[in-house]
Nucleic acid binder design. Structure first.
Lengths: 259, 259
DNA sequence: GAAAGCTGTATCATTGATAATACAATTAAC
DNA sequence: GTTAATTGTATTATCAATGATACAGCTTTC
């Protein structure tokens, strides 16, 4: 992403048009001189924005020929979290995903985590930072908080290999339900570095509170995902119900996955 | 958001810590001089970042006293889209939401929209841009594409008042199902202006393809949402199914909404 | 009320981004 | 090939962001 103010504005403006589909794939952009006039900036500034867009894979440039919108087919390998199948956990597309443990420690949780899990004042948690990758590229940055009393038997080696659900259930935890909230966040320097995205790019953010049969919080997950590599899909059906018509999540059995 | 490069970096770095909860609400930050040394920049640059964070509601500053993380209670009015109730459409929290029509026209759709809806080559669509607001503040920017043959009877007045589903069903369309995909995107100048957020901030992005009973696409929605005002919530239950344990969307009847 | 610590404000030198211009290299069309 | 349009590269001048420093004003603490 360009560092300067004007070039950044041009960058975002063009990115907006590309993302919204107003600039079609393979479509030729106006010349640099024309764009400079359109935006009211100099050609140098336009070039900075176009260079950055090209570097981030949105455009292809060729001397003499012009600048074109890169078709989406060039997009990196994708991972989809799908709620329409009975497997809302990670479904791998292509290859399996790999986990890497960045750090783990026992510490006091942030206040909002303690509240969400319903912890006693002063109670500690195991805080683990991990990434999930596909094809060698990290697509998510996960921070998990597990009450220390529950996490007792979970080693760093465990964290590097198995999903946390599995580890918890192996520890005798009866996982009952989870509540997720999806939002968006900017990539700060640390996360940007681990995910290999430019600082200040948009990430999908997902918070998940997992509870056991007794209603006690057993895990708080805070995940950040690269939007170009990760999608959250949902299917809905329109059903009659009582007085009016409503939407309802569609649940497709795994055996007959559509597409 | 700061325009310069270094101040922007400080801004994002602090925002990252606040969002992740590593800087607790009401917690006092190190002094400006200390922060300047930590980040290896001058105090002027730190101030720019802090000023911007304060202006965007993340910090409170008081001369003589210090700078503190603002508790989340000050957050603007929120809207939640909840999949755990039987109303995955918009559920209003507090007041109702208002619609404003920005523009509408009949035109050729972008290629990816035509493909998603399964349109004939050259077929036109009604393209409408709208915002939804709550308490006078816009929290979403919606662009909808409806095949022109279906949208025939839909006027601008209709678009300004009713949800599109209702209008379509009034036109005799039998809506059967929808497929949604959630992601994140940066706010470009246009959208940033209509949503009242700084350019380059992170937005939740939602694409929805609505199909009728015959499997034909009747609506393509591309929505951008302010993450501080809009959340997408989902509840899951852990169920035994066949060989192993799976996650499944929890569906709570409206009559007994939990919390 | 004195002291310490903090934010608010101002100044000036320095560094980096932007503008304006010119020209070279590449490509596509005729 | 020649032409026209395009991107790539370079130079210099101008303007905006940053750095360094100093000091004023507000808060809390003792």
């Amino acid at each position: 992403m360009p560092t300067g103010a004007k070039s950044r504005r041009v960058y975002l403006s063009l990115l907006e048009r590309i993302s919204a589909g107003r600039l079609e794939p393979s479509q030729k952009l106006p010349g640099e001189e024309q764009l400079a006039e359109d935006f009211g900036v100099s050609r140098v500034t336009v070039r900075r924005a176009l260079d950055a867009l090209a570097e981030n894979g949105f455009l292809t440039r060729r001397a003499g020929s012009g600048t074109r919108v890169r078709p989406r087919s060039t997009a990196p390998q994708q991972v989809t979290m799908d709620f329409s199948t009975l497997l809302p956990q990670l479904v791998e597309i292509g290859r399996k995903t790999e986990v890497r443990l960045l750090s783990s420690r026992i510490d006091q949780p942030p206040e909002h985590v303690a509240r969400a899990l319903g912890l006693e004042p002063g109670e500690t948690v195991q805080i683990a930072r991990r990434t999930r990758s596909i094809g060698g590229t990290a697509y998510s940055h996960l921070t998990t908080f597990v009450p220390a009393r529950i996490a007792a038997g979970i080693s760093d080696a465990d964290l590097s290999s198995e999903p946390l659900h599995v580890l918890l259930e192996r520890n005798g935890v009866k996982i009952a339900d989870a509540r997720q909230s999806v939002s968006a966040a900017l990539a700060g320097p640390e996360v940007a570095a681990t995910l290999g995205v430019p600082e200040g790019s948009a990430l999908l953010s997902l918070d998940r509170i997992v509870r056991d049969a007794g209603g006690r919080g057993v895990e708080f997950l805070s995940g950040l995902y690269r939007p170009d590599m990760f999608r959250l899909d949902m299917s809905l059906t329109r059903v009659d119900h009582g007085g009016g018509r409503h939407w309802e999540p569609a649940i497709t059995p795994l055996e007959e996955t559509p597409r």
